[in-house]
Design a protein around this nucleic acid. Structure first.
Lengths: 143, 143
DNA sequence: TTTATTCATACTAAGTCAATAGGATTTGAC
DNA sequence: GTCAAATCCTATTGACTTAGTATGAATAAA
């Protein structure tokens, strides 16, 4: 499935914040360096996650980002909706016919609901734990 | 979920062929008139469905299209893959980091597999039957 | 030979997306 | 109070994708 770069980078950033914030904030520069994502691009993505109340920002010098709540309370659906609300939304065809209506109603809406169900079931904690599990075999280097 | 117009029109066309081919073929012109889709656009979509062995074409005068097999043997996955193979394919991030790799492997690939599972479970018959069910309340008019 | 159809390919206009750019604002440290 | 480090806001650009159109060739029935 094709994932937009924005959503992809958003998830990666959140996992990064989750792993690297030890009672402190994580800056755009930090994430950019660790994850090889342009800082300017992140500056566009992170405010959106803040507006969706997924992360909290501290402005000014020594500022940065932290999660607003425990990672197990942040779902994949939260993140996707914050960055691209069309992904999980119901879709309705513009073609005008009874068949088109039926396909919209009984197929696409069902498919969207099915996807939402999946994204509800995955939390940031699940992803971060998976990274940690990988790290036990292959040691993690903090930058 | 955002569905491409091509896939949408493809499904609609197949349902149309399924419903309106009574031991005969269905032409682009017929589908176009019934479903309000440009004939020229359909001429681009239907050959792709033929190449994927979902429909069979009869060329020349009195030509048209029929399904190659019973509707219950044609899955949503067959159709989507014929028209846009990126939808159900695994996606791998281009960002270069351990976290990005982990997200690709354990998140996006799982999500694609989940979607494939859904699309495997829905057949053209299911959709056509749904249309028929609607018609018992609201009579269907053949053109 | 005409007509009705599919087939193949090229084209275009509009829209979307990824990424960059520039500067404004906020805050801590000295 | 000044400087530096950070987020914030908004605009812009260039590349790519998509939807739909156009033109004409090939095929086959009547």
């Amino acid at each position: 499935m094709k994932i937009s770069s924005k959503v992809e980078c958003g998830i990666i950033s959140l996992v990064d914040i989750c792993i690297y914030s030890n009672n402190s904030v994580v800056t755009v520069i930090n994430i950019s360096a660790r994850q090889n994502i342009s800082a300017k691009y992140l500056e566009q993505i992170l405010p959106q996650l803040r507006q969706a109340d997924i992360i909290r920002s501290v402005k000014g010098s020594h500022g940065g980002y932290t999660l607003t709540r425990p990672a197990e309370k942040i779902t994949l659906r939260d993140v996707i909706n914050a960055l691209d609300c069309t992904v999980l939304a119901d879709y309705s065809a513009k073609e005008d016919s009874r068949i088109a209506d039926a396909v919209s109603e009984c197929l696409w809406s069902k498919m969207s609901a099915y996807l939402r169900n999946f994204t509800d079931s995955v939390t940031l904690r699940d992803i971060a734990d998976r990274i940690a599990a990988d790290s036990s075999a292959q040691p993690m280097y903090y930058i």
